[in-house]
Design a protein around this nucleic acid. Structure first.
Lengths: 352, 352
DNA sequence: TTTTAATATGCAATCGATTGCTCAAATTAT
DNA sequence: ATAATTTGAGCAATCGATTGCATATTAAAA
């Protein structure tokens, strides 16, 4: 027991039993009598025994670590999903290693490599925006390591996924604008290679069609959806003198940029133009007017993702795992930016 | 080589040498000839050898993992610091395990326990707001495990720390408001047990005193500094009919709440009241008017924290480590909310 | 009473990499 | 040419926990 760290051997010696017995007792193995278990537990406490997870991991092949790959933790959505994952993981004594890909393909590959190197028991990931080749994910599967994707998924991989119904969210958002009287709704989207944006655009289009409004391609603007992109896209539409009475953006950030530009150009919000974003970032309740947006159910998504992960992990035969796709319904959060008649009691939004 | 995973033994067998030789060759040990090293490297590549970090960790006692404890990753400041830490850590082949304490004392203790359990080589932490007893941190030190604190630090621990000069930041901010003509500056602060808030308050007071303005305790409001707290505090000041012409908040969130309440009460910003926040959260450039705030140099802080960490880690004798405190100068980001004459070209702020 | 089961524990190998020590071969010095 | 040194590599223990198999003890069944 040098270095102050007690091992099962120290406990064993103290109790004049073998390390195997101690190990089994600590793991509550039924082959050990209750009396012995009690003694072992007592001695463990006395010696301030802390199990060495690394030794355990080496022998058992389980590190009790889950690697979580997200584009960035600095985004309400992702950090909430992580929180949801942690809740479940911690409850079964697993730790989460968070890795950020910064939406960079190279970094994403490296980070996965690094996670595999620290011997995580499995990986939960949301694919970066610039990632088009998913071979690095295939590598995970080839090693027989559980993989679950959430939100930014791909169809090229036969793995379990948890997503929100982007189509539904966009449909609701667009229909809401239509119900508020809008007919010329601008839509900000991103690359159609990214599933979520494709789906959101489809929801937008279908809502228009349902209400007999033609889809005008001039109104659909593609960009990376950052704040600055929203500014640019909005300015372009204004400069081109394309008539419009609303904007539905696939991202809260770009709708933010649009809001700024609209104000700078003297538009009255929401009277002249109504706005709806996507993501329910915290700042959407700070803006003026407060922003209507789509909430992505991030914590439940994290919970479900983790649960799905553990289902797979606990399966004996990793090859015969059946992939399942869970689709969550997002929720339209109606605030002032999209309403015909403004709700001035903004406090309600903040408490809700 | 069952299970597709090659070990050093597989390489050894293929090359008809021993595992020791392979291990030394891979670790570039000078006792191995270049010819052998080359062969080993080649064979390793052929067999697609991936070192088993767990085995290595068990034997060497090094997991190449750093535990990072933050209140929440979902905060621009913290996620940027983490990014800064990762940059350095990854460059020396270390991984970062991020743990969130959610500003909860219990969770903080648990999370540290969990990190020690996964055998991290050291811990970098920012102390939670509700934490007053730091015994759990002492425990880390007692185990001889390197610990570095950043931003939310404590004097009760003899460890290296990296902080920003909160006093300086607050002083600059307050002096700026004074220079813009303000004399009755409200200050939002948090518990004075938390160092950073104490320092910010001190900076505020000293700036006032320097300019011959008395410190009026009625103007200083204590809260948890969330958005809602900012609303409440602001409303209280207004209701109490205390005259004021500016607000300097120790947090961007509460200044946000103040901004909302001021607008709701018909104040013109920045003409009637000037505002300065602290933190440079991304949303501060979205608001209207855009918010003057204090940037905390988060990425450099992360870099320096990690560098300090590795200096300690590489020290032979953990007991004789000399703690050092690095203090970074924050930067006042001047935007429209604090200016006498408004700058209407808000794009400049956004690009900067 | 003898046999059969069940119960409780021990023995020893194992996970994969590292490392102190030993030793043979090659090189240099005397 | 012999001794001294350097170089390159092997042997075997080790890190701490787990686990298949064997064994001893006790209880139940025949």
């Amino acid at each position: 027991m040098k270095n102050g760290k007690a091992t099962i051997h120290d406990i064993a010696e103290k109790l004049q039993v073998t390390a195997s017995t101690v190990s089994r007792a600590l793991n509550n193995n039924p082959r050990i009598s209750d009396a012995t278990k009690k003694k072992v537990l007592k001695a463990a406490k006395e010696l301030n025994y802390q199990p060495n997870n690394i030794a355990s991991a080496l022998r058992s092949g389980k590190s009790r670590l889950i690697g979580v790959v997200v584009p960035t933790a600095n985004r309400n959505f992702f950090s909430s999903v992580i929180r949801g994952i942690e809740e479940i993981a911690n409850s079964v004594n697993y730790k989460v290693v968070i890795s950020q890909s910064y939406d960079d393909y190279e970094k994403e590959m490296q980070t996965i490599e690094a996670l595999l190197n620290v011997q995580v028991d499995g990986i939960i990931a949301s694919i970066g925006k610039t990632t088009e080749n998913v071979d690095h994910y295939k590598k995970i599967l080839k090693k027989g390591i559980p993989l679950v994707l959430f939100d930014r998924v791909t169809n090229e991989l036969d793995v379990s996924q948890v997503v929100i119904d982007d189509y539904y969210g966009a449909f609701q958002a667009t229909e809401h604008l239509i119900n508020e009287g809008c007919r010329r709704i601008v839509h900000f989207s991103n690359s159609q290679n990214i599933n979520i944006y494709k789906e959101r655009k489809r929801g937008y289009e279908d809502a228009l069609l349902k209400h007999g409004i033609p889809v005008d391609l001039e109104l659909i603007r593609f960009s990376k959806l950052q704040l600055e992109d929203g500014r640019t896209s909005m300015q372009e539409v204004i400069d081109a003198k394309i008539p419009f009475d609303a904007v539905f953006s696939a991202s809260d950030y770009s709708i933010m940029g649009a809001m700024q530009v609209l104000k700078e150009n003297g538009y009255k919000l929401p009277e002249d133009v109504k706005l709806v974003g996507f993501g329910d970032e915290p700042f959407t309740s700070f803006t003026e007017p407060t922003l209507t947006t789509v909430n992505q159910k991030s914590i439940p998504m994290g919970n479900i993702t983790a649960e799905t992960f553990f289902e797979i992990l606990n399966q004996k035969d990793q090859k015969n795992v059946i992939s399942k796709k869970t689709i969550l319904k997002p929720e339209l959060i109606i605030r002032n930016s999209s309403l015909k008649t403004q709700n001035h009691n903004s406090t309600i939004d903040l408490i809700a």
